[in-house]
C-alpha cells in the first residue's frame, strides 16, 4: 500500500467506521433511523465532545491532560452553587475555574519540568477537592426557574436543532480555525512533531503549551456547565467515568497519541463513534458497568491500528 493511500485511509477510516456502526445499530433497531433520533444522539454526544475537544490540542503537542473529568465536575458544582447568587456571571466563573486548573497543570509541567501525565494527575486531585468544597460534598439541584433564565442557551432548541449541538458546533469551528489557520495551531503541530526544532527556531514553546492546557481546562469546564444544565444539578462526581471515553474519542477519531497529527473534527467523529457504541451496547443489553471495558478495548485497538508501532524504538 502506498504511503498516500495509507494516509487517506487514516483520514477516512473513522468516518467509515462511524457509518458502519450506525448501519449495524440501525439493522438491530430500525427506529434508530430517524432525523429526530439522530439529533438526540448527537446532542447527547456533545458533552463528551466538549470535554475531549480541548484535550485534543494537548495530545497534539504530545502531552496529556488527566484532570478533565475533575475539572468538569468542579465546574458543575460552581455553577449549581452560585447560580442563584451571581446569575449569568456564574457561567464565565465556572469556565474560568477550568482555565485556572489548566494553567496550574501547565505551569507545573513547563516550569518544574514534570511530565504532563503527573502534573495534570496532581492537579486533578486538587480540583476534585475543590469540587467537594464548592458543593459542600453534596449534589446540588439547580432550580428550574434559574435554569430557564440562565441556561436555556445550553438545553433548549433553536431552529429545531438542540442547543447542545449549536454549542458543540461553535466550539468545533472556533477550535478548528485556531488549529488550522493560526500560527498557534501551526506551532501546536510543530511542537508535537519535533519540539526541539521549534525551540531552536526561537519560539517560546512554553507559552504555546500553557495556552493548550488552558484551552483544555476551559473546554472541560464548559462541558461541565452544559452537563449540569442538562441534568439540572451539579455534583463533585458528575463527570466521573468521562476521562476514558474522552481519550478514546480523540484516539478513535485519528489524532495520534504521539503528537503532531490530529484535528478537532476528528475528535467530533470519534465522540460520535463512542456514543453510537454506547447506544449499541445498551440495545444489546450490555450493563452500564461493563461498558468501560469496551471503551478500554476500543482505545487499545485504535492506538494499535493508527500508530505505526514499527517506527517506535522503545515504548515506555
Amino acid at each position: 500500500m502506498s504511503k498516500e493511500w495509507k494516509e487517506r485511509l487514516h483520514t477516512y477510516l473513522p468516518i467509515v467506521f462511524l457509518i458502519v456502526l450506525v448501519l449495524l445499530v440501525g439493522t438491530y433497531d430500525p427506529s434508530f433511523f430517524s432525523v429526530g433520533n439522530f439529533l438526540t444522539v448527537t446532542a447527547d454526544t456533545m458533552t463528551l465532545f466538549l470535554m475531549a475537544s480541548g484535550v485534543t490540542l494537548v495530545i497534539m503537542i504530545g502531552g496529556i491532560d488527566l484532570s478533565i473529568q475533575a475539572v468538569a465536575s468542579m465546574a458543575s458544582c460552581i455553577l449549581a452553587a452560585y447560580l442563584g447568587r451571581f446569575g449569568m456571571w456564574t457561567i464565565p466563573l465556572a469556565v474560568l475555574g477550568g482555565a485556572v486548573a489548566g494553567l496550574a497543570g501547565s505551569l507545573v509541567s513547563t516550569r518544574l519540568r514534570i511530565p504532563s501525565f503527573i502534573a495534570t494527575l496532581a492537579v486533578s486531585g486538587v480540583v476534585l477537592s475543590a469540587g467537594y468544597w464548592f458543593s459542600d460534598t453534596r449534589s446540588i439541584n439547580i432550580p428550574p426557574d434559574l435554569s430557564a433564565s440562565y441556561l436555556s442557551w445550553a438545553v433548549g432548541d433553536t431552529l429545531g436543532i438542540p442547543n447542545e449541538i449549536w454549542v458543540g458546533v461553535v466550539a468545533m469551528v472556533v477550535l478548528s480555525v485556531l488549529l488550522q489557520l493560526t500560527p498557534f495551531g501551526r506551532l501546536i503541530r510543530g511542537i508535537g512533531a519535533q519540539e526541539q526544532a521549534v525551540i531552536a527556531s526561537g519560539i517560546n514553546v512554553d507559552r504555546i503549551k500553557i495556552a493548550a492546557y488552558v484551552l483544555s481546562g476551559t473546554m472541560a469546564a464548559l462541558a461541565g456547565v452544559v452537563m449540569a444544565a442538562r441534568l439540572g444539578s451539579g455534583s463533585p462526581t458528575l463527570a466521573n467515568e468521562f476521562l476514558l471515553p474522552a481519550i478514546a474519542a480523540i484516539i478513535v477519531g485519528g489524532t495520534a497519541i504521539t503528537g503532531g497529527v490530529g484535528s478537532v473534527w476528528r475528535t467530533f467523529v470519534g465522540a460520535l463513534i463512542v456514543q453510537v457504541v454506547r447506544i449499541g451496547m445498551t440495545f444489546m443489553g450490555v450493563s452500564v458497568f461493563a461498558q468501560q471495558i469496551v471503551f478500554g478495548v476500543i482505545l487499545v485497538a485504535a492506538v494499535a491500528i493508527t500508530l505505526d508501532r514499527s517506527k517506535l524504538l522503545v515504548v515506555k
Partner: peptide
C-alpha cells in the same frame, strides 16, 4: 533532523517557522 527542521512539516512550513 532533531533541531534543524520538523520533518512532518511541509517545505513552506519549515521555511517560515522562525518568522511566523
Amino acid at each position: 533532523k532533531v533541531e534543524g527542521l520538523v520533518a512532518q512539516f511541509s517545505v513552506a512550513e519549515n521555511m517560515t517557522l522562525a518568522a511566523l
